[in-house]
């Protein structure tokens, strides 16, 4: 499990698409907007995870 100290950096890194040069832009963005985008990512991840799961089960 990821140490809690890294949670915030993980959040910023995800929003900056892994590009450290974009961190500052994200830091100055409204927090609420970032949360909505993260929520969207969360549901997208869940959806793709389900798809992969179904694929894996089909192939097994």
């Amino acid at each position: 499990m990821m140490p809690p100290e890294l949670n915030h950096i993980a959040m910023i890194d995800r929003l900056a698409n892994g590009d450290i040069t974009k961190y500052n832009t994200i830091y100055l963005m409204p927090y609420e907007e970032c949360l909505y985008t993260l929520e969207l990512y969360h549901y997208q991840d869940k959806y793709y995870e389900q798809l992969n799961r179904i694929e894996r089960l089909k192939n097994s």
Binding site: Y27, M29, E32, C34
Partner: peptide
Amino acid sequence: DFNTFKSAEKI
């Protein structure tokens, strides 16, 4: 003004 909080401020 909660919606005006910048990410850096909240973090």
